[in-house]
C-alpha cells in the first residue's frame, strides 16, 4: 500500500527524516525545530509538490502531544503524513500558515482546543471558544464540571 517510489523521493529531497512504519500512508517523524525548513521542502521540492494541506490536527498522549499534518499533492495525487512529538509542559511548533494558508485557521483551532503555541503565527487567538475561556478542552486532563456531561 505504501508507495516505495515516493519514499525514495522523500529521502532524496530530505535526507534526515525518519519513517514510521504501519498506517495507510508514508509517515514521516520530524523534530519540531526543523519543521519550518522541511515544510518548505515538502511543498516546493520537485517531485514532491505537496501543495494541499488537507488535515491538521493534534493528539494528546498525556505524556506528550503529537502534531499530525496530512499532505496531498494536487499535481500527482500522492499523499503523506508528517508527525511531530511535542513536549507536554510547553508545547511549541512553528507555524506554516505562510506556506499553506489553510493552516492559519487550523492552527488557531488547535491552539484553542489543545493549547499548542504556534510560533510566528500572524494572528494566534482563540477561534471557537471565548477569549476568557480557561483551559484547553480537547486535552485529556481537561475537567469542566458545568459544561461536560460524562457517560
Amino acid at each position: 500500500m505504501v508507495d516505495e517510489v515516493l519514499k525514495i523521493k522523500i529521502s532524496e529531497s530530505v535526507p534526515s527524516v525518519l519513517f514510521e512504519e504501519g498506517g495507510e500512508w508514508i509517515t514521516v517523524m520530524i523534530e519540531p525545530p526543523s519543521w519550518l525548513s522541511l515544510a518548505d521542502r515538502f511543498r516546493f521540492a520537485p517531485g514532491l509538490d505537496f501543495d494541499f494541506l488537507f488535515c491538521l490536527t493534534c493528539i494528546d498522549w498525556k505524556s506528550h502531544f503529537t502534531m499530525v499534518y496530512h499532505l496531498r499533492s494536487t499535481l500527482n495525487g500522492q499523499e503523506m503524513v508528517v508527525k511531530s512529538k511535542l513536549d507536554h509542559t510547553a508545547p511549541e511548533m512553528e507555524s506554516v500558515s505562510h506556506i499553506w494558508r489553510t493552516a492559519e485557521f487550523h492552527e488557531r483551532e488547535v491552539y484553542d482546543l489543545f493549547g499548542i503555541k504556534f510560533l510566528h503565527h500572524p494572528d494566534l487567538r482563540r477561534l471557537l471558544l471565548t477569549d476568557d475561556w480557561k483551559g484547553y478542552p480537547l486535552r485529556k486532563d481537561y475537567e469542566d464540571p458545568v459544561n461536560m456531561i460524562k457517560l
Binding site: 488535515c55 493528539i59 494558508r101 489553510t102 485557521f105
Partner: peptide, 18 residues
Amino acid sequence: YRIKFRSPGFSNLSALNH
C-alpha cells in the same frame, strides 16, 4: 482515543477574507 473531522466548510470559510 481521538477523532478529528476535517470539515469542508471550515477550510472554505478561511478563504472568505481573501
